[in-house]
Design a binder for these strands. Sequence first.
DNA 1: CCACGTCGCTAAACTGATTTAGCAGAGCAT
DNA 2: ATGCTCTGCTAAATCAGTTTAGCGACGTGG
Lengths: 341, 341
Amino acid sequence: MGRERATLADVARRAGLSKTAASMVLNGREGTRLSAEAHQRVFAAAEELGYRPNVAARSLRTRKTATIAFVSDIVATTRFAGGLIRGALDAARERDHVLLITETQGDATFERYAIEAILDRQVDGVIYAAMATRRLAVPPAILGGPVVLLNATSPEPLPCVLPDDEGAGAMAAETLLAQGHRDRIALIGRNRQKERDPEISLAADARLRGIRGTLAAAGVSLLTEGFCPEWLPEHGYAAMRTLLDRPTRPTAVICMNDRLAFGAYQALGEAGLTIPDDLSVISFDDDPIAAWLRPGLSTAALPHEQMGRRAVEVLLDGGDGAASFVPMPLRRRRSVAAPAD
Amino acid sequence: MGRERATLADVARRAGLSKTAASMVLNGREGTRLSAEAHQRVFAAAEELGYRPNVAARSLRTRKTATIAFVSDIVATTRFAGGLIRGALDAARERDHVLLITETQGDATFERYAIEAILDRQVDGVIYAAMATRRLAVPPAILGGPVVLLNATSPEPLPCVLPDDEGAGAMAAETLLAQGHRDRIALIGRNRQKERDPEISLAADARLRGIRGTLAAAGVSLLTEGFCPEWLPEHGYAAMRTLLDRPTRPTAVICMNDRLAFGAYQALGEAGLTIPDDLSVISFDDDPIAAWLRPGLSTAALPHEQMGRRAVEVLLDGGDGAASFVPMPLRRRRSVAAPAD
DNA sequence: CCACGTCGCTAAACTGATTTAGCAGAGCAT
DNA sequence: ATGCTCTGCTAAATCAGTTTAGCGACGTGG
């Protein structure tokens, strides 16, 4: 790549000045006493030669690389990763930085490997991302420089960027209350593991808190709570079937994520029930599938792009140390209506 | 990051040898006449000091960075990107390389920007990826070094990695023939634009060729072909509805992708028809949704991970110049059975 | 007239590796 | 004793920038 690029020495020669002068002018150094004419000549020469500095040479001296490492546990298995990466990419570009991406796959050897690669390249900072919101242990080796946790927290007091799951839970509950749902709101997706172990999930507990808090404030409590071993469509399907077997059918269901909601849709379809006439459904994540369902699924969107962007901002512009919660906007579609009876 | 790392000079000093000697030993240079003892001492010193070479310094001299640029048009909007990236990441790691990721979003300014960032960093090669299989124009600036096209071809004779869509089409048709389907096989997802304009899609035409060729060889032709303005669920839904309005109902449907198939499922569900008893469905992509549908959707999987991996291999190990077609394995689920009548 | 400060600029050191050119000593033949 | 080769190793140049230290000319105040 990059053949015969002009060097700083070329620019200096053409401008009839020293490398020192050229370097200072191009870096916009304050307090130098170079004449306006010298500035002009350097800029002109650089322009004419299409000069671009060699990053390797520069970072050898300055130890800055204009490169951010994006380390994540898993990129492929969740399609949300794309959003995080894209947001980070955008924000990085705006700040003239570039993203070096590595993946640990939760494997200690890979992680060590990734971290060595990063340290060898002297990146300016690390975004350590988890693909499911959770607490994790940051490898000490990267604590030498700036680190931001993305979609994760850690025992160390590091800046972190998280989705506002509790707010989303509150909003879901409010949305149903506003439509007039009261004592026949059911929940699908309770999961002890997720709720209890922050190293597995932070979202489950937060969403639940938001839902319960808001309902309680309105003097309402959940009709039933369906437990699911995983948050997958088949479990949503099963949970909805048992829900339909109960004597009082709910008027609305809150699903802990869209995949569960998809399963619930399948069960309702088979039972010949219509959404939202017979039953409202609301959910979390805004998985692409939410828009494809019939009717479209109302859901609180995980703001992945915003989060990726925020992580870069906190890393480069310096966060205030506090955790940064990014709101989850509600995507209103057709799955929520007033109860029939 | 990276505080107080040992340098080559430190290693040399500790080993009681020159930097030259240390460098040669650590790089495993052949033909050097350094003694076995000198080798030992250098290795020991490097080990004790935890020496890792400074990539910036090395690449300043050698113009190699052990870094590959992954340039794509869009990463976030398609959840397939993750697979490509993960495969590339894995293969890169195996070869001690790292991935620099940029995104152009199809925007010329962003593209120029991305390419400058890449050239400035002297990457060893570029993977230029499209998120939908298509033909594209490669910016001349990156042609100075090795380039591999991923999920794309170009007018220039560059090595490229593509999914074997034609083979997948053939396999889909064969699968239905093997189950005994004959003259009542329908197709959903014809699209003139996609089929005609290689800058939009290469997949549409290739899949169609594979399907038609195989059916023709068995003396069978398609019952009907449903056209769709896009390959989205709503269009699959509409196409299936019009299909069901026809006098002879098909025994099997081939959908050009899984999202169309999802729409078809919705229409069949509403019509009270059962898959695969009343109708078999087969498709392409292996979108995550394919596994979630009831019954699971049989589909030819886009081998994204393999493709990403292959791209890195071709880039670093040198391809044979020919296009590299990666087979699309059929994921057999429950949506295909023998025709009822 | 001289010391001093300011202006405008530059030489050279420095970053940490790789690589070229070549040196000192041993062994051997003439 | 001399010339030659071979062995085992090193000094110094090089990559392309940034940064430190400082130089010569000029203006000014005492």
